[in-house]
Amino acid sequence: MKGSQIFLFIFIMWILIIAGCVLLVTISESIKIQGYLTLEPPLFYSSIVKAIIAITFVAIWVYVLSKIKNWIFRRQIKH
């Protein structure tokens, strides 16, 4: 079918979104940082760690997607 690679690419994007969400929530929800020197709110530290994990996940997602894009569309995007 003409353009079937585009459907495949969208499907792979969707799978990556679902898989990324499951991994992100599983990892980030397991992070519990106890109070530091009893002065700082532990929520703040755990939030920083979660934010870093989430941003790292997005960066990995974009990297993997660009590799898959090159693989799926190698003929079309070859200049």
């Binding site: 679902i18 969400c21 499951v22 992100l24 929530v25 599983t26 980030s28 929800e29 929520l43 703040f44 939030s47 920083i48 979660k50 934010a51 989430a54």
Partner: peptide, 13 residues
């Protein structure tokens, strides 16, 4: 809100 797994709270984000 995430599929399958539920909610996640990341206040900073």
């Amino acid at each position: 809100s995430f599929p399958i797994i539920g909610h996640a709270t990341i206040p900073l984000l």
